[in-house]
């Protein structure tokens, strides 16, 4: 129990350090840029493909129920609300936690194991700023965009699936999909992934940065990063959804 609290305290201090050091110049733009490439561009295929598949599956599932109720016209709206409000942000975050979280954990742990972090420090470069901050920043910046990609690929998947079954026109689909959507259904849920990004970046970096077990620590850091960041993302989602409902009561359907 004591260890747990110690751990929580360590992670929290680590997170705080991330925030503090993010805004302390100089800002490592080059590192941030390359991390955006790593976290963002290279996650895009995964996110887009998952979104598309999920969109198809979602429509297949909701379709029969809605058609039973004579609410076939609601299919695009259900699809868009589901993706924009929850599936997009959460699944994008979980995918990123899986792909990027493991990557960050492993890379930093490996750098620690191979003394690269020492080497950086030996060059009088703040390794924390050089390695951790850009990764967290990249996660924070990129996740909303990946979420948007997820939303649209999900919608595209839904459209393709619906088109195959009912030959609905794209224009009608888009109109119906966005008619029932409010800004409160899109902006807050998309921006909440900033928090997810912070969690993923921080937790993964923490495990990588603090490992001191050599080579086998790398694998463990990667696993722990994925497990804990996924878990924290889902837990944070509960709180964030509640907060969004408080701030935008009309978005609570």
């Amino acid at each position: 129990m004591r260890k747990l609290f110690e751990f929580v305290g360590k992670v929290a201090r680590f997170g705080l350090q991330v925030i503090v050091k993010t805004f302390r110049p100089p800002i490592e733009f080059r590192q941030i840029w390359s991390q955006i490439a790593e976290v963002g561009s290279r996650s895009l295929p995964l996110v887009a493909a998952s979104g598309l598949a999920l969109g198809v599956v979602m429509t297949l599932h909701t379709r029969s129920t809605l058609v039973t109720f004579g609410a076939g016209a609601m299919i695009p709206a259900v699809q868009s609300i589901a993706f924009f409000v929850e599936i997009g942000p959460l699944v994008a975050a979980l995918l990123v936690a899986g792909r990027v979280g493991a990557g960050i954990g492993a890379v930093i742990a490996n750098m620690r194991a191979t003394e690269q972090i020492d080497a950086i420090e030996a060059l009088s470069i703040d390794s924390f700023k050089f390695l951790v901050v850009p990764r967290v920043a990249a996660c924070v910046l990129v996740l909303p965009l990946l979420t948007t990609f997820m939303d649209f690929s999900g919608l595209l998947g839904g459209y393709l699936s619906e088109y195959a079954l009912s030959h609905i026109s794209l224009r009608l689909y888009v109109t119906r999909a966005f008619t029932n959507l409010d800004w409160a259904n899109f902006v807050p849920p998309t921006l909440k992934t900033v928090v997810f990004g912070f969690i993923i970046g921080t937790v993964s970096s923490f495990f990588g940065y603090t490992t001191n077990e050599g080579a086998e620590g790398v694998g463990r850091a990667a696993t722990n990063s994925v497990v804990l960041s996924s878990l924290l993302v889902i837990l944070a989602d509960i709180i964030l959804v509640r907060c969004i409902f408080l701030a935008f009561p009309e978005s609570a359907i």
Binding site: S34, V107, T114, E115, Q116, D118, A119, I120, A122
Partner: peptide, 16 residues
């Protein structure tokens, strides 16, 4: 540190 150089056991080249 600017006056010092360090050669690490594993060279510690930056992988990226």
């Amino acid at each position: 540190r600017r006056r010092m150089g360090f050669l690490f056991q594993s060279a510690a080249l930056f992988d990226s």
